[in-house]
Computed example of a mutant assay.
Amino acid sequence: MSETPADPALRRRGTLLLAGIAGAVLALDLASKIAAVAFLEDREPIAVIDGLFWLTVLRNPGAAWSMATGYTWILTIVAVVVVGVIIRIARRLASTGWAVGLGLVLGGALGNLVDRFFRAPGPMRGHVVDMLAVFAPDGSIFPVFNLADSGIVCGGILLVLLAVRGIEIDGTRA
């Protein structure tokens, strides 16, 4: 008997893959933020590849490029909604690609939500710790980011590619 996208075993495998990837992204993001605050805060940026890549610490109250800095609470609500939607649609998940993409987005959203809820200046207004800088250590050319941001962007790109190719969340093709 061949497995079909509606097969409960495929859906269970997809959900477990999503959860595993989300957990890994969240754990790596939290560990990197803890290390960055402990070892990099209040120090000059460290050039890893001079002229290309630095380690530094910035506290970001907004989104990318510090947009929406006065609306941190709205960004928090949006992230909570994204997490809820991903958890809700996970029951239909039977595509490995969608599981990977959604897992990356979920892990990244959770990583930044932890900062929004538990970092200063307070719940739903917390500033996200960013520590990876490319092209300029101060974020003047490209925003300083973190592993959660990378998960969100990479997962988002993968989801767009899957949608363009007509691959549905249940593993069928449109």
Rank of each mutant, 00 (worst) to 15 (best):
N146L: 09
Y71E: 13
T96G: 13
A68P: 04
V164C: 00
L147T: 05
G139W: 03
R125D: 08
A109C: 09
V37G: 01
A68V: 08
S66G: 08
A109G: 15
F142P: 04
A35V: 11
T96M: 13
G23P: 04
T69I: 09
R12L: 13
M131F: 15
T15K: 15
L58M: 11
D42R: 13
A136D: 15
R88D: 09
A31I: 09
L161I: 14
E41R: 11
A148G: 12
G70C: 09
P45K: 06
M131N: 11
F117H: 04
T15R: 15
V80S: 12
A148V: 12
A64M: 02
G139R: 03
S2M: 10
G62Y: 03
T172H: 08
V37C: 06
I74S: 04
V85L: 15
S2H: 12
G108P: 05
V48Y: 07
L17W: 06
I34C: 00
P61T: 07
F118E: 00
L10N: 09
F53V: 09
I46S: 03
G23V: 07
G51W: 08
D50K: 12
I46V: 14
G155N: 12
D29H: 03
G151C: 06
G103F: 02
G139S: 11
I34G: 00
S66D: 13
A64N: 03
D50V: 05
D149F: 12
A174I: 10
H127Y: 10
R43D: 07
V164K: 00
W54E: 03
G126I: 03
P61V: 04
G70H: 06
N60V: 07
L104V: 00
S32M: 09
L110N: 01
T56L: 09
A120I: 08
